[in-house]
């Protein structure tokens, strides 16, 4: 176990160190969510005037929740890019050779993703607060909201690391991020589910991200709904993609 923790700490440290010292990695991961917040909360605020749009904290808060979860997911995706880069550069091979406990490699990358998102999430929250976001949830509800973000980050990081380890090339970037991007945007991003019509409504209804997004919006508004479903879905996702990442690592080990 100690060896596992050593590897985890080492890989996570490198991941976060590379992020912090390299503006080309750090800046986009902060700027993109901020930009989405500005574009959606600012540019689309009149959407809240559509009949039957009811969200007590207002449109900025409505969009903050989406951007908060999106930044969590993309924190994981960006880590997948780093894994793919490590395989391209040969650094991952060095890791596989030198790590006494290889499971720690995945844990390290995942922890790195979480630490990375801690920066982005804090900046996005601060920006939303400055923009006049209203919060009606109490302390426990906000902690639960944070928990949803952490789990979202974990699931996305496991997916991204797993796929990066299977594909082992930087070209895998598009394949890693596209499903996450599409899944996020097939949720009720701009209006509540009840206001969506046509095929997007049908898709969003069965999209697991919808349940997480609605639960998170409910927590911020102080009226939690579908909490068990949201946490259950994310926990299941973590288990499934955890196994996927483990198999990805095994595939990388076999490839040598």
């Amino acid at each position: 176990m100690r060896r596992f923790l050593h590897v985890t700490r080492g890989v996570a440290w490198r991941s976060i160190h590379n992020t912090v010292v390299n503006p080309a990695i750090l800046v986009p991961s902060i700027v993109f969510p901020l930009f989405f917040l500005v574009a959606f909360a600012g540019g689309l605020s009149r959407i809240a005037e559509v009949p039957n749009f009811h969200y007590r904290p207002g449109y900025t808060s409505f969009q903050f929740v989406f951007v908060f979860l999106q930044s969590a997911a993309f924190g994981g995706v960006f880590t997948g890019f780093a894994v793919a880069r490590d395989f391209d550069s040969g650094f991952a091979r060095r890791l596989l050779l030198s790590a006494p406990h290889r499971g720690g490699i995945i844990a390290g990358y995942v922890l790195g993703a979480l630490l990375r998102w801690a920066i982005t999430g804090a900046v996005v929250t601060l920006a939303a607060a400055i923009a006049g976001m209203h919060v009606y949830g109490d302390g426990a509800e906000l902690v639960a909201l944070l928990g949803l973000g952490v789990l979202m980050n974990l699931v996305a990081a496991l997916w991204a690391c797993g796929l990066a380890m299977f594909l082992r090339t930087e070209q895998a970037g598009a394949v890693i991020q596209m499903p996450v991007f599409v899944l996020l945007f097939l949720a009720p991003v701009y209006v509540p589910l009840s206001l969506l019509t046509g095929w997007i409504h049908d898709v969003a209804r069965y999209n697991p991200v919808t349940a997480v997004l609605q639960a998170a919006r409910g927590l911020l508004a102080g009226s939690p709904t579908e909490l068990a479903l949201a946490f259950g879905l994310l926990a299941a996702g973590a288990l499934i993609f955890g196994a996927f990442a483990r198999r990805g690592l095994a595939s990388a080990e076999r490839a040598g």
Binding site: R46, V50, L196, G198
Partner: peptide
């Protein structure tokens, strides 16, 4: 095209803005 397909439906409620 993906964005067009998604946003074309997801934002269709915007047509109800006076």
């Amino acid at each position: 095209l993906i964005l067009f397909a998604i946003n074309g439906s997801a934002l269709s409620a915007a047509t109800k803005i006076p």
